[in-house]
Design a protein around this nucleic acid. Sequence first.
DNA 1: GTCAAGATTTGGAATAATTCTAAATTGTGG
DNA 2: CCACAATTTAGAATTATTCCAAATCTTGAC
Lengths: 147, 147
Amino acid sequence: MNAVGKKTGSEFSERLNTGGFRFTPQRQQVYDVLLQKRDHPTAEEVFIRAKKQMPEISHATVYNCLDALVECGLLRQVQLDRGATRFCPNMREHCHFYCDVCDSVYDVDLPAKSQPGVSLPKGFKAERYEIAIHGVCPDCAKAKMKK
Amino acid sequence: MNAVGKKTGSEFSERLNTGGFRFTPQRQQVYDVLLQKRDHPTAEEVFIRAKKQMPEISHATVYNCLDALVECGLLRQVQLDRGATRFCPNMREHCHFYCDVCDSVYDVDLPAKSQPGVSLPKGFKAERYEIAIHGVCPDCAKAKMKK
DNA sequence: GTCAAGATTTGGAATAATTCTAAATTGTGG
DNA sequence: CCACAATTTAGAATTATTCCAAATCTTGAC
Ligand SMILES: [Mn+2]
Ligand SMILES: [Mn+2]
Ligand SMILES: [Zn+2]
Ligand SMILES: [Zn+2]
């Protein structure tokens, strides 16, 4: 993996295979859309962007591809508010800042040793943590001040 | 507030007032439903339960009430998966354990000094943190073992 | 290479979740 | 009592996601 987390074609293909999926142009296209603009788009947004390059791609396929890519560890799924699910190709450990004013989403790196020291009651098996920070982004904070 | 976080009628009413809302029987009913079974129900679930006591209550009212109660700090809204938003009357600092197998949700207390030491880039104003732990609950873990 | 089986895609229908709208009802203060 | 604003209501509308059956593609066996 290089600096921005982009994978070579063969790495991408391998990752799909080990997850039990085949390589398909649609899956590649959906993944490319996610890499091109890292603004945590919704499935609908991905569909719109993917159609520009691949006009025949269908809505259902975008959902299928997104699910497959999440399942094989190439994408993360992010739930932030009542709206649609968003997707993120950054697989480094990070959390999300969500601006409650403009709905934008930013990746926020977590300090090296971060796993929140939560102690779970006996019997619970934790698989992953999702941390979301709600607040106001710099642009909206500035806009608010002027008011 | 007593041990389980339940508020007296007048505390409830005051909280609404300071948020700029009136007391209404529907708001009380919705809040009571949340207190009665702390399983993080969805709006639809709240609607079904509220109707048992108040058969004329409408769908839209349940959404309105939930939003009002969230806005005045009597409920928390919780986003865990692609499904419907859930609601929680526990206003102590806590996070959520979500069982990916059976969709159940559990409150998990956070250690006293907990605020994840995330340093936000300049300009971002954090208002609240939401931590979700995805994994397998004790019941589902047991069921898995038997297999 | 041909063929069958399984995986994937497609368009559209179906369902689920939420929001909107306009009219009726309720509560408040004058 | 009256005017006014807040709230509720039923149902329509919209948004998000899932489901379905038919078409297409891929792969492995022969
Ligand atoms: Mn991200
Ligand atoms: Mn909770
Ligand atoms: Zn913003
Ligand atoms: Zn479970």
